[in-house]
Nucleic acid binder design. Structure first.
Length: 992
DNA sequence: ATAGTAGTTGTTTTT
DNA sequence: CAACTACTAT
């Protein structure tokens, strides 16, 4: 069989091999979207014979594009992979603009303005205009307008009086960018759009365009996608509206519908099987997302066992919350007999700023971690200084960078001098740099005479920059960035400067500079091998590409990468050959999208954090929580500090549980404290992770150093448990002895290196906080207390507050609760659905797709209950009831050979429902090798309009032809309503 | 006029 | 905690 299709389930194959030119793959978390997209790229290359340089593949984040490159390298080999045009929209656009920007009058060697630059520019403008607008607000609104393609003039036409101020700022901002030859993030997209509209031949080679995370595209990106594909109109997108979390960046979910409207031959494939998470986690997440009543019912089907119930933990305060995570991480690691490593844990945060307490607690406890997202390496002041020097060297027209460094380190050039220089430059209408040079060399003068000291300082600066530029000219290869950093740091005596300026953490700051050098050489090494190959865009006949001095080119590229980089790629620390250290991941939820971990913590689930107090759209915040929860494979922990002193609202800083977690939900879907991790639970975890079950000895071995085998340090209500607390009041300092080293090691020292990971400084790896020793349970005690751990409920939750949820989950599946559904798709209404008188309403003949109105994975029901369910489900559907899945994978039978682990799930051992293929359009006839013609089973709704019902295989492939006469069918429309309603809503009422 | 310090502020999410 | 303001010492 085709190796590309290996390990793909039916629906995924359907998507990969689809011959439709316009393909939408819509799928919930964990269903293998990216895998499918990757395979489709490979498939297009091998089966359609496209050249890699003729395929554009857009991702949304740098991380995603890296990951896709890696996957593709494995699938099609590095040689082909490296020639693909693959990257974020921004980086792809940059590449086109570098090559062809001259066609639309873009000056050579433009720089990229990052958000610091834009903020500085806007701040200056606001000051000059004496406007009262807040800088950040102006920044955001300008970006928003740009993202909608609204120019200052266009805005002026429709703006209200109070907006006129913004129009002025916007105008000045645009000219400031132009004056410095800078493009901001939005410009990269906009200008590339301009380019391709005016010169479509630049992309005339493009055979296919693929877009990941399509729900995150904004309108400009959507247009870009179409422009990229303008020649052959072959587009594949994957996405999931439920995971749209970039609305703040003007992402528009309705692009899905736009696309369907624009291309009447859109094929839609649904993937619904979740291969990632325990059923219990999916249930909880599903219930969270379903609170969005505008959202269409959408299946999310577990392929794993139910597992153990997620946790919603209350704790006294953020500090305790952090300590609790430490204890739970240790407990999990120890009690699972070493199947969980530190890198299997993740803490996902709404805001990066929440990380500080956690970092402190982890640092103290010796838990190694890395923070991703949040404050970026390249944003650190000392790094920024060097980078700004390099930007000036690269383009002397970069006045903002120049402003930032004229007097750093101090050169006796103060406010007054700068004022003279900038106003002089403005009057002369030349860039600041040129003006300064003229003044120094006596060709011009400022209005007021400059101070001698200042003039001298300027001299030093000019000499440095000129010397650096000289150096750059001499350097004809990719090592230029590195050479320049060293040269500049040397000439500035930068290390000495840091010692003077930051005596507290000078060493760590210097280390960051070193790290920057390291980065530069790494990029150099990378470019050496790649740049000669086809990193460049393919040559197009008749369109000239711009070429540059290769050293300069390397420098601009380096700076662009810096501006577009979220985080730096630390080559897995190759220290003395030993393994890269396993680290817990601390991340923002945004940065965690698309990733997964065996154990996930989501702290601070209180109102104000999630949903964030400044959030404009609550739905997006809910989706954010949904994304966070669905990152978890085996264990999910939510937690909330019941007091948050910092936010002094509501008297004594009491918090309220996130509105997304109403009591109804938390009672049924969560437990109040960490699960007891006895054998059965551990086995379930191992099975879900497809790792070998640990031996009992391994499990017991870990227990020795645990203060407690239970999550009982705090009561379930989130109070200090007095019985666990000895003399010391422990809320802040579990171990005073360690305090001193904490101070040195804490996250305050902002070395890139140190913040990236702590070394475990106690040899056991686990600290036993002395203060909670009374809660200690020895391994022997544990074994004695759990002689026959047969059910998760063996140990009672500390209080009666919560029912023992696992018992409920495992043995008495909840009845379908029709009352809880707001979308009207109750179990009861399913019968209506099939009887369907109300479901005939037609809205439009838009291409759309459908899915089963209601599908929920329940814990393996007992025989009786299954009977019960049958009686409710209408006969035609009953045969497609999801079978008790826990019967399938209870053994750790998965061999390492099957790392992706998909195959066994896709084997026909599962309740099979081959998708019926009907009334397909011509595209489909030739394609699929999957011989489904003789579908053995057929769902009622499948016999219509060319879409297929979702089955347990969940391939719903549908081709819609606009003209096709709508046939009278059973309620299909209805099941589509959700999507369409939503599309409409989003189309119509686009607020803010 | 410049440098350095102290006090005040207000903190989403990312390219 | 850093960015901005206000102040003081050079």
């Amino acid at each position: 069989m085709d190796p590309i299709l290996d390990g793909l389930n039916h629906a995924q194959r359907e998507a990969v091999t689809s011959s439709g030119s316009i393909l939408q793959v819509l799928a919930p978390p964990g269903s293998g979207k990216t895998k499918t997209l990757t395979a489709r790229v490979a498939y297009l290359l091998s089966h359609h014979g496209y050249q890699p340089q003729d395929v554009i593949c857009c991702t949304f984040t740098i991380k995603a594009s890296r990951e896709m490159r890696e996957r593709l390298a494995k699938l099609i080999g590095e040689k082909l992979e490296s020639r693909l045009i693959l990257g974020t929209f921004h980086s792809i656009c940059r590449r086109y603009l570098v090559k062809y920007g001259y066609l639309i009058g873009l000056r050579k060697g433009f720089g990229i303005a990052d958000s610091d630059d834009t903020r500085a520019i806007i701040r200056r403008i606001i000051k000059r205009l004496k406007s009262s607008t807040e800088v950040r607000a102006a920044q955001g609104r300008i970006s928003q307008h740009k993202a909608h393609g609204l120019s200052p003039d266009a805005l002026a036409d429709r703006a209200k009086a109070e907006e006129m101020e913004l129009v002025d700022i916007y105008r000045d901002y645009e000219s400031a960018l132009a004056a410095s030859n800078l493009l901001d993030y939005d410009d990269l997209l906009l200008r590339c759009g301009d380019l391709l509209r005016e010169h479509p031949q630049c992309v005339s080679n493009v055979q296919a365009v693929l877009v990941d995370e399509f729900q995150d595209t904004n309108i400009i990106q959507y247009e870009l996608m179409n422009l990229f594909a303008s020649k052959h109109r072959r587009i594949t997108i994957v996405g999931d509206p439920d995971q749209s979390i970039y609305g703040f960046r003007s992402a528009e979910i309705q692009n899905l519908k736009r696309m369907q409207q624009r291309y009447s031959n859109t094929t839609v494939v649904l993937l619904e099987d979740n291969y990632r998470s325990a059923g219990s986690i999916l249930n909880a997440a599903q219930e969270v997302i379903e609170q969005d009543t505008a959202r269409p019912a959408k299946a999310l089907l577990a392929t794993h066992t139910f597992g153990t119930l997620p946790v919603l933990r209350r704790l006294p305060n953020p500090n305790a919350e952090a300590q609790w995570m430490v204890l739970e991480i240790k407990r999990c690691a120890a009690m699972t007999g070493s199947i969980l490593r530190m890198s299997d844990f993740a803490v996902l945060l709404r805001s990066a700023s929440l990380s500080t307490q956690i970092e402190t607690a982890f640092g103290r406890a010796g838990i190694p971690y890395k923070m991703v997202g949040g404050r970026k390496f390249f944003d650190r002041t000392e790094v920024k200084i060097i980078l700004n020097y390099m930007r000036v060297v690269s383009h002397t027209g970069h006045s903002d960078a120049l402003m930032n460094i004229v007097n750093v380190p101090p050169r006796r050039i103060g406010d007054e001098t700068i004022k003279q220089l900038t106003s002089g430059a403005e009057k002369a209408k030349i860039p600041l740099w040129d003006f300064i040079k003229d003044v120094i060399q006596g060709r011009r003068s400022t209005e007021k005479k400059l101070q001698k000291a200042a003039e001298q300082g300027l001299c030093v600066l000019v000499n440095l920059i000129e010397a650096s530029r000289q150096k750059l000219q001499e350097c004809e290869d990719a090592s230029a960035p590195r050479v320049l950093i060293e040269f500049i740091a040397e000439r500035l005596s930068f290390q000495e400067y840091l010692i003077r300026a930051y005596p507290l953490d000078e060493d760590s700051r210097w280390a960051n500079v070193k790290e920057l050098m390291h980065q530069a050489s790494e990029v150099a090494a990378f470019e050496e091998e790649e740049v000669d190959k086809e990193m460049d865009l393919p040559e197009i006949e008749g369109v000239e590409q711009q070429q540059a001095h290769s050293g300069e080119e390397a420098l601009t590229r380096f700076l662009a990468n810096v501006a577009l980089a979220t985080e730096i790629t630390t080559k897995e620390e190759t220290k003395e050959g030993d393994q890269p250290q396993e680290k817990v991941t601390l991340s923002t939820i945004h940065a965690a999208k698309g990733l997964e971990w065996p154990v996930v913590f989501v702290p601070a689930v209180y109102n104000g954090s999630i949903p964030h107090s400044r959030a404009e759209v609550v739905e997006e915040e809910r989706r954010l929580l949904y994304v966070a929860m669905t990152r978890a494979q085996a264990l999910l922990y939510l937690s909330i500090p019941i007091r948050q002193p910092r936010l002094g609202e509501g008297e004594d800083g009491a918090t309220t549980l996130s509105t997304f977690l109403p009591p109804k939900l938390t009672k049924s879907r969560f437990r109040a404290t960490g699960p007891s991790l006895h054998e059965k639970v551990v086995y379930a975890i191992a099975d879900i992770l497809r790792r070998p079950r640990p031996s009992l000895e391994d499990i017991y071995k870990g227990l020795e150093f645990l203060p407690s085998t239970l999550d009982d340090r705090w009561t379930a209500e989130g109070e200090e448990d007095r019985s666990k607390t000895d003399e010391t009041s422990t809320s802040g300092e579990p171990n005073p002895k360690r305090r001193r080293s904490d101070m040195n090691q804490g996250p305050k020292s902002t070395t890139y290196i140190s913040s990236t990971g702590y070394t475990m400084n106690n040899s056991t790896g686990f600290t036993i906080p002395t203060t909670i020793s009374s809660g200690f349970t020895s391994a022997r005690d544990y074994i004695a207390a759990n002689p026959e751990p047969t059910a998760d409920s063996a140990s009672k939750p500390p209080s009666g507050a919560t029912a023992d949820a696992d018992t409920a989950g495992a043995n008495k599946p909840k009845p379908f609760s029709s009352a809880s559904r707001k979308d009207g798709l109750t179990q009861a209404s399913i019968s209506n659905f099939f009887a369907g008188p109300g479901s005939q309403k037609r809205e439009s003949s838009l291409p759309s797709y459908t899915q089963p109105p209601f599908r929920r994975y329940e814990a393996p029901p007992s025989q009786n209950q299954r009977q019960g369910a049958r009686s409710v489900v209408p006969a035609p559907l009953s045969s497609h009831r999801v079978q008790p899945r826990s019967l399938v994978p209870t053994r750790p039978t998965l061999e390492p050979t099957n790392l992706n682990g998909y195959t066994w799930l896709a084997t026909p051992s599962r309740p099979t429902l081959k998708p019926a293929r009907m009334s397909m359009t011509q595209e489909q006839s030739g394609t699929s090798a999957s011989g489904t013609a003789g579908a053995d089973e057929m769902k009622p709704e499948s016999s219509t309009r060319g879409f297929q019902p979702v089955s347990t295989f969940h391939s719903t492939t549908m081709s819609m032809i606009q003209a096709q006469a709508p046939r009278r069918t059973l309620g299909i429309r209805r099941s589509m309503n959700g999507w369409q309603d939503r599309m409409k809503r989003e189309g119509g009422g686009h607020a803010s």
